[in-house]
Write a protein that binds this DNA or RNA. Sequence first.
DNA 1: AATGAATGAGGGTTCATTCAT
DNA 2: GATGAATGAACCCTCATTCAT
Lengths: 204, 204, 204, 204
Amino acid sequence: MTSRSEDTRKKILDAARAEFSDKGLHGARVDVIAERSGANKERIYAYFGGKEQLFRETLKASIAEIINEEQFLLEQLAKDPTRMTEATLDHYISFLERHPHFWRLLAWENLSGGAEAEVMGGIREETFKEMRQLYKQRQKLGLFRKDISFEAFIYTLSAVSFFLFSNRHTLERTLQLDLGTPATRKKLMAEVLELINHGQIPHR
Amino acid sequence: MTSRSEDTRKKILDAARAEFSDKGLHGARVDVIAERSGANKERIYAYFGGKEQLFRETLKASIAEIINEEQFLLEQLAKDPTRMTEATLDHYISFLERHPHFWRLLAWENLSGGAEAEVMGGIREETFKEMRQLYKQRQKLGLFRKDISFEAFIYTLSAVSFFLFSNRHTLERTLQLDLGTPATRKKLMAEVLELINHGQIPHR
Amino acid sequence: MTSRSEDTRKKILDAARAEFSDKGLHGARVDVIAERSGANKERIYAYFGGKEQLFRETLKASIAEIINEEQFLLEQLAKDPTRMTEATLDHYISFLERHPHFWRLLAWENLSGGAEAEVMGGIREETFKEMRQLYKQRQKLGLFRKDISFEAFIYTLSAVSFFLFSNRHTLERTLQLDLGTPATRKKLMAEVLELINHGQIPHR
Amino acid sequence: MTSRSEDTRKKILDAARAEFSDKGLHGARVDVIAERSGANKERIYAYFGGKEQLFRETLKASIAEIINEEQFLLEQLAKDPTRMTEATLDHYISFLERHPHFWRLLAWENLSGGAEAEVMGGIREETFKEMRQLYKQRQKLGLFRKDISFEAFIYTLSAVSFFLFSNRHTLERTLQLDLGTPATRKKLMAEVLELINHGQIPHR
DNA sequence: AATGAATGAGGGTTCATTCAT
DNA sequence: GATGAATGAACCCTCATTCAT
């Protein structure tokens, strides 16, 4: 594993991420990945074994990215636990915005049966463990409702953030919203946050 | 356009829906569609022009389905406007559950650039118009918060219902929930509804 | 199975026989077979499933040829049972000479493990059955030695005829014989026949 | 040519013999030879020039082996010239049995046109020269028939021994003999010897 | 001398699409 | 209108061979 081969491997992985993200497993072309990466097609097979395995590696690498980023979220939440909902939602949206291949690969994968989704399991477990503790703490403090589980909470935040990107095209047509414009998007999400948030804290 | 050809056309469309829903535009095979439909491959080209055009027709047909169903929702909401949120969410989930090809085709389409999403625009416009009126009415009555637009409301309901299906595989791994089991799903969605609902009605 | 497709199938089989006979399973090229046959490459896959299956079909077809021809031998032996050894050897040599692809395909196949050799089993069984009867008859008549089985007899005839073709190149070098020349070949085989023959009939 | 490089060369040649013997020129893979030999692929090109040249070298080396062994046969025949046929046949069978790559490489080569067969010429010439003298001597003694040339004699012995191995798979099917079992094989060959032998010595 | 990385020309196979009947 | 046969352009993958260190 010389630095040269490591470099080639990485170039292939980068190109694969772009290509698979764009067109999915079946739409992607190995030739295109080779060309995009500047490497020889055969190297793909030497390093990754085949198209499907490369897709899997690409997916894994993309999922790995979320881990690092979630560390920031955890640190932030530890410092300032007020506004947990907002901070988490913001983080999710920001992450998906900056890593379009993440949600795209995940979406392709889910449509194809999610055989590789298991990769995600263990990976995010730890983050969730810490967040769950924080959530329960706040439930005890009376800031979050006790009859709403952490799972439902995180599910909702995931859904409203993921959907924004994954169904953007359809949304723009049906809701007549230009979600490409940050301002429009922010306004929408602010309202969504409001909707979620005020189920949490019993203002009275 | 004899009744015989109409019949063949329909059989092709049905087979195409199944195949495209399963595997997407690129994963689907024209041969398979022909076989599944019992029609000759060449008929597909005679009637639809090509694979992509067939996909488009399939998508359109699937979207059209939502119209009929949404009439029921509107009627129901007209009769009993209390529990608008719950009724809508239930309707969405039930629809997606009974029409997996709908959300699947939409998901494939969104990933591919959503060129055909425009079809949806006009189609659901009318439904939304009626729902928006109802929503505003209830805002005036103080049952829904005034600073949360109809768009944000419907966006949230759409997201939490669609996400349940579109990301099911990933969800099962990360949240350790067995979403195939109706009971688990119902419990989750009940909590999500709670979360959304209590931002609407200021209990005090 | 129209006559047109039957024709194409046959053209492919003919071309395959030539190509496989020349270069064996691994040396043969599907493109070349397609070109030689004048058919489209894809037809090969449509009709035969793949390269290896085509090879198998080719082998089967070639083996089938020997059956028809062996009928002539049987008839001949029935008419004139004297000179059984000579007639059989002549027939074998003549057959191999006129069907080079037969022994070549068989030779390739034997080298590759003979997985398909089983095809031959049942096929020649009947011929051998009749010949065995004839052989035993002649043993009883004291024309063939009783301590030499039919198997050893037919084995020897097969070996000396097959070897003439299968090892021709090597033979020409080591024995300095020009086996391409019919006269040389005939002289050699006449002597070999003599060698075999006089073990059969106890001249005394 | 250090002893280290000599060693590498030998390891390559050994691996090549195994691989080419198994799969022939076209079926063999350079990568596999490199792996089997434990040497680097590039060394093959440095030492042998290419795949085909390596095959040729492998063939030459294998043919060379026969020389040493045939010395034993000659010595044996010199000591005890009675039973020349049997001794020679036994020797051939034993040699082929112990050196499967010899007959396999030769068979592949013959099928591919036998371009390298010339190597054999010179190599066995000397052995044959001695054997021919012995044969003629015995013809004069009236032990071998005068109208059967040495070439026909040696041809027959070569054929019946070589064929046993080269066509084993086909034979097992057509003659229903289990040639893998030594006993079966011995019985068959004993009868074949009988057949040949008694053409030699005019018992009367 | 030796190695791991890289290359480019195929090699087998499949696909969407069209033709001939 | 309908069908089975045919086509050619890819598509994934592999191989013999060479390069750079």
